[in-house]
Design a protein around this nucleic acid. Structure first.
Lengths: 158, 158
DNA sequence: TAAATAGAGTTGCATAAAGCAACCAGATTT
DNA sequence: AAATCTGGTTGCTTTATGCAACTCTATTTA
């Protein structure tokens, strides 16, 4: 693969994908959001190869998406828990889930029914909004050029 | 890689990642949102290998995220344009961007400044909301078990 | 009109990841 | 004392990715 890296990219999407943009990382985060914390459980629930899981967990920990907690009274028992940074992926995961439900519904038409604990009503549809909460499409949005960082206009910032 | 596929997974996140969860697809979609449409431009802007780009474009087209349009008057000139399905990834991309900006800001602190064309104000922060638009965290949300599809309780649906 | 250039891909090859299965070492049960 | 469980490693095979060179139309340029 050689897998080109984007960690120094000027694009924050690229930088984000550099951390969670592989085939497994987001699924691991999702699983963690469901409450999974232990190595074997991730392995079982996701059906991921153990060496890959190992590698992904390490990466997520080193990127501070998860933290590794020793809960083994005396070693040999660890938990991987979401950090604030990891928890902050909630909107990303939900947006992806809703996209998947809308455009690639499950064969049986069943979508996971996420609801607000307080009201019991379904979670709203993720949308890009303006400052007043009104939905925005791509066409409603433009990129404001930064008010010139220095003398040279650099248009390559994305 | 062998890359395990999730296209028949019961998890819509997994199904979504199966289509756009690799290193390049979302960046291609993002680039398309910026207005890029032609092969060489994607190649140049993203710095992606041409064979990989070729493969990714084909996949995105076959998954109906992009469509390939012949604009060559007489062939040999094509454009890849977002479909509605592709455009619907807007919230995903924006959520990712905001996450990247928040937790991995660019070295120079510059984040892309997205604004609402109508008001000129910055785009709001993506958040999971309840039916009234109130923000929800992971802990505010629960999974409602489907009201029993048939006789057997199947708890493996995620 | 011939030659050069551009667009959109292919092809071939080297290298790095993903998947799989077997193996290990410390701690806990049986 | 033997069997399990947990969290990994190791070795090997199969794919993917990156890179560079090449191809085939179609459009420009000289």
């Amino acid at each position: 693969m050689i897998r080109k890296r984007f960690d120094d990219s000027s694009c924050s999407v690229a930088r984000a994908l550099d951390e969670v943009g592989d085939w497994w990382s987001l699924l691991i985060v999702l699983q963690a959001m469901y409450g999974t914390r232990r190595f074997v459980d991730f392995q079982r629930e996701l059906g991921i190869a153990r060496n890959i899981l190992c590698d992904r967990l390490e990466r997520l920990v080193s990127n501070k998406v998860l933290r590794k907690v020793d809960v083994g009274e005396h070693g040999s028992r660890f938990e991987y828990r979401l950090t604030d940074k990891g928890r902050d992926l909630f909107p990303v995961v939900i947006a992806l889930r809703q996209w998947g439900d809308k455009w690639n519904p499950a064969p049986d038409g069943q979508a996971l029914d996420l609801r607000d604990r307080a009201s019991g009503r379904p979670v709203g549809t993720m949308q890009v909004q303006d400052a007043d909460g009104q939905p925005l499409t791509i066409r409603d949005v433009f990129v404001r050029e930064e008010p010139d960082t220095r003398q040279t206009a650099n248009r390559k910032t994305r």
